[in-house]
Simulated scan of single mutants.
Amino acid sequence: MSEDPIANRSVLITGANRGIGQALVEEALRRGASRVYAPGGRSITRTNASPR
């Protein structure tokens, strides 16, 4: 099986405060993104992976 294309990459998700955007943040972290950038200056890494 090949590695997920977002594993160990940085991801930018707009509208990540709620709804579909928040679900995308959670999914990106689940799939191994190393860092997720969300609105409002929020940056979520695998070490502080709680998107809320």
Score class of each variant (00 low, 15 high):
residue 1 M to Q: 02
residue 1 M to I: 12
residue 1 M to T: 14
residue 1 M to F: 09
residue 2 S to P: 14
residue 2 S to L: 04
residue 2 S to G: 05
residue 2 S to Y: 05
residue 5 P to G: 02
residue 5 P to T: 02
residue 6 I to Q: 09
residue 6 I to M: 00
residue 6 I to E: 00
residue 8 N to I: 00
residue 9 R to Q: 14
residue 10 S to R: 10
residue 10 S to C: 04
residue 11 V to T: 11
residue 11 V to C: 07
residue 11 V to H: 08
residue 12 L to S: 03
residue 12 L to A: 10
residue 12 L to F: 15
residue 12 L to T: 00
residue 12 L to E: 00
residue 13 I to C: 06
residue 14 T to F: 02
residue 15 G to V: 12
residue 15 G to R: 03
residue 16 A to H: 11
residue 16 A to V: 08
residue 16 A to E: 11
residue 16 A to T: 11
residue 17 N to Y: 13
residue 17 N to P: 10
residue 17 N to S: 15
residue 17 N to M: 11
residue 17 N to Q: 09
residue 18 R to P: 04
residue 19 G to E: 07
residue 19 G to S: 08
residue 19 G to C: 02
residue 20 I to L: 12
residue 21 G to E: 08
residue 21 G to V: 12
residue 21 G to Q: 12
residue 21 G to C: 04
residue 22 Q to R: 11
residue 22 Q to K: 13
residue 22 Q to W: 11
residue 23 A to K: 14
residue 23 A to C: 07
residue 25 V to M: 03
residue 25 V to F: 02
residue 26 E to C: 05
residue 27 E to K: 06
residue 27 E to G: 01
residue 27 E to A: 05
residue 27 E to R: 07
residue 27 E to L: 14
residue 28 A to L: 00
residue 28 A to M: 06
residue 28 A to R: 00
residue 30 R to V: 03
residue 30 R to D: 03
residue 30 R to W: 06
residue 30 R to P: 02
residue 31 R to P: 08
residue 31 R to G: 05
residue 32 G to M: 06
residue 32 G to P: 01
residue 32 G to T: 10
residue 32 G to F: 02
residue 33 A to G: 07
residue 33 A to C: 06
residue 33 A to E: 10
residue 33 A to N: 05
residue 34 S to A: 14
residue 34 S to K: 13
residue 34 S to L: 03
residue 34 S to D: 13
residue 35 R to E: 15
residue 36 V to S: 10
residue 36 V to T: 09
residue 36 V to M: 08
residue 37 Y to N: 10
residue 37 Y to E: 08
residue 37 Y to W: 09
residue 37 Y to C: 06
residue 39 P to L: 03
residue 41 G to H: 08
residue 42 R to D: 10
residue 42 R to G: 04
residue 42 R to M: 12
residue 43 S to G: 08
residue 44 I to M: 07
residue 44 I to Y: 06
residue 44 I to G: 02
residue 44 I to L: 06
residue 45 T to A: 14
residue 45 T to S: 15
residue 46 R to C: 05
residue 46 R to A: 15
residue 46 R to S: 11
residue 46 R to T: 15
residue 47 T to F: 09
residue 47 T to W: 09
residue 48 N to I: 01
residue 49 A to Q: 02
residue 49 A to S: 14
residue 49 A to K: 13
residue 50 S to I: 12
residue 50 S to H: 14
residue 50 S to L: 07
residue 51 P to Q: 04
residue 51 P to W: 10
residue 52 R to N: 13
residue 52 R to M: 04
residue 52 R to T: 14
residue 52 R to Y: 06
